[in-house]
């Protein structure tokens, strides 16, 4: 299931992909992006498999790869770690900045995520206010401070 909040204004902006099996969390995260006035199209998928399908489809349709991906770890089926590993081993997909965004605070999850090539590891904060702040930080870093890698699929 692919959900998109893309609208007319966001056409042309690099999409953001949220991978999280928890629909409520997806809802909260999208809300936090909107609070931060992020106009990039927000896509969300509910599993690792769907995330990989999303990237394959982008490849086939010569569409833009996501300019940013938020990846939950604890998902049924192809979990966050495996999804991360497959993305970071892919010749093209590996350029997509992946922020592991999870409730876990466990050191081993942090270590494994970075070892598999995560660009950042952030624990889901408690409360919406915190979430808005965290999303603001993510956006500021990935859309302003860091030079965005070329994600278009020419």
């Amino acid at each position: 299931m692919l959900m998109t909040d893309a609208n007319a204004e966001s056409v042309g902006l690099t999409p953001i992909l949220i991978v999280d099996d928890d629909v409520e969390d997806v809802h909260f995260i999208k809300r936090a992006f909107k609070k931060n006035k992020v106009e990039n199209p927000l896509f969300s998928v509910l599993s690792g498999e769907e995330a990989l399908e999303f990237l394959q489809r982008s490849e086939h349709e010569h569409a833009s790869y996501p300019g940013l991906m938020l990846l939950d770890l604890n998902m049924p089926g192809v979990g966050g770690m495996e999804t991360l590993q497959r993305i970071k081993r892919h010749e093209e997909w590996r350029k997509i900045p992946v922020v592991v965004f999870t409730t876990s605070k466990a050191q081993e999850d942090i270590d494994t995520s970075y070892r598999l090539g995560a660009n950042s590891f952030i624990s889901k904060p408690f409360g919406l206010e915190g979430l808005v702040g965290v999303v603001a930080n993510i956006c500021q870093y990935w859309f302003s401070v860091s030079a965005l890698p070329s994600t278009s699929n020419e």
């Binding site: 969390d25 909260f28 409730t103 889901k124 409360g127 919406l128 206010e129 979430l131």
Partner: peptide
Amino acid sequence: SHDLREPLRKVMNYIEI
């Protein structure tokens, strides 16, 4: 303590909404 935090986090979010 780990699993109980999850629903609690959501309650907090809904309160803020």
